[in-house]
C-alpha cells in the first residue's frame, strides 16, 4: 500500500457514523459561533479587498501612511488613539526622526515639576497619542452628548471590522422618504439603527496626500480603515508569518509522528 492509502486506512475513517458525527459537530459549532454575530441588528457592509486579510497578510503601508494623515487631519479632532505611541508609527515606515517630528507637534501635559505644578512640553516619540478631550465628559459635552469612541481597537471592537469602518465613512446619504431624523443625527446606511451622531467628515480632496494620490472620499475611507486595522492589530504580519511556519512545522511533524505510530504498532494484531 502506498503511504496515502495507508493514511486512508486510519481507524477513525473506518467507522463511518463517527466521521459524520465529527464533521457535523464541527460544522454546527462553527455555525453557532457565527450566529452570535447574526443576533445583533447590524447591517452587513460590503466586503472590500484588504491586503492584510489575505493568507500571507501584510499591511499596505502606503495606504496606512495616507490613512494616518486622514486620522491626523480629520479624525483626531474628536477621536483619541490613546493606546498608541508616536514611536509606533515607525512600523508604518516613518523614520525615528519623522515620528519624533510628528510627536513634537503636540503639547503634552507633564509634571508635577519641582514647584508642584503641572507643566506643558512638546511631545516625544515615547509619548502616547494626545487625546482631543481631557475625559469622556468633556467629549460628550462637545458633541451633543455623544462620545466619539477611542479608535485604537475600533476594527476589533466591531463585528465587521474594517469593512464596517469603511462602510460607515462612505455610507452617508439622505434619509429614506418620510423618515425624520432625530435632532443632531445623520442618516447612515451601515450604522446600527441608521442614525449616527457623527456628521460626514470626509470631503472630496479634503486631505492633500503626501504621495499625491487622489483624495476621493472612497480613497480616504479605505486608507483610514487600513490605518485603523494596523492600529488595532500592529503585530498582524508577524503573527501570520509565524503562523505559516508553525502550521507547516506541525504538519510535517504530525505526518512524521503518524509514521512513527504506524511503525510502533506494526507488530500488533
Amino acid at each position: 500500500m502506498t503511504p496515502l492509502q495507508k493514511i486512508y486506512k486510519m481507524e477513525n475513517f473506518v467507522n463511518i457514523p463517527k466521521k459524520i458525527f465529527f464533521s457535523f459537530f464541527l460544522i454546527i459549532t462553527m455555525m453557532i459561533t457565527s450566529t452570535i454575530f447574526a443576533s445583533t441588528n447590524a447591517v452587513k457592509p460590503p466586503q472590500n479587498e484588504w491586503k492584510h486579510r489575505s493568507l500571507f497578510g501584510t499591511f499596505d503601508r502606503a495606504a496606512a501612511q495616507r490613512g494616518f494623515q486622514v486620522y491626523k487631519e480629520v479624525c483626531s479632532a474628536c477621536h483619541s488613539l490613546r493606546l498608541l505611541s508616536y514611536r509606533n508609527l515607525e512600523a508604518l515606515g516613518f523614520s525615528p526622526e519623522e515620528s519624533k517630528a510628528i510627536a513634537s507637534e503636540y503639547v503634552i501635559k507633564d509634571g508635577p515639576n519641582d514647584e508642584g505644578d503641572m507643566f506643558k512640553r512638546s511631545g516625544l516619540s515615547s509619548d502616547r497619542f494626545v487625546s482631543p478631550y481631557a475625559n469622556e465628559q468633556a467629549g460628550r459635552a462637545a458633541n451633543n452628548g455623544a462620545f466619539p469612541p477611542d479608535l485604537s481597537l475600533i476594527t476589533k471592537a466591531r463585528v465587521y471590522g474594517e469593512d464596517y469602518i469603511h462602510g460607515i465613512l462612505t455610507g452617508y446619504s439622505d434619509p429614506p422618504e418620510g423618515m425624520t431624523l432625530a435632532p443632531g443625527m445623520y442618516w447612515n446606511k451601515y450604522f446600527p439603527g441608521h442614525q449616527i451622531a457623527m456628521p460626514p467628515m470626509l470631503l472630496e480632496n479634503g486631505v492633500e496626500f503626501a504621495d499625491e494620490t487622489e483624495a476621493s472620499i472612497e480613497q480616504q475611507a479605505y486608507d483610514v480603515s487600513v490605518f485603523l486595522s494596523w492600529a488595532a492589530d500592529p503585530h498582524l504580519e508577524k503573527r501570520m508569518a509565524m503562523g505559516l511556519k508553525t502550521v507547516l512545522f506541525l504538519l510535517v511533524f504530525s505526518i512524521l509522528m503518524y509514521f512513527v505510530k504506524k511503525k510502533v504498532w506494526s507488530d500488533i494484531k
Binding site: 459561533t33 452570535i36 476589533k156 471592537a157 466591531r158 463585528v159 503573527r239 501570520m240 509565524m242 503562523g243 505559516l244 508553525t246 502550521v247 506541525l250 504538519l251 511533524f253 504530525s254 509522528m257 503518524y258 512513527v260 505510530k261 510502533v264 504498532w265
Partner: peptide, 28 residues
C-alpha cells in the same frame, strides 16, 4: 506514540486559531 500524534494534530488545529483567526471564537 499514538497520543503524541494526536496531540500534534490537536496543536495544529489550535495553531490555526491562534495565528489566523484569533478573535473568531470571542466577542468584539
Amino acid at each position: 506514540a499514538k497520543d503524541l500524534f494526536g496531540i500534534l494534530v490537536f496543536l495544529l488545529f489550535f495553531s490555526i486559531f491562534i495565528f489566523y483567526v484569533p478573535d473568531y471564537l470571542g466577542h468584539p
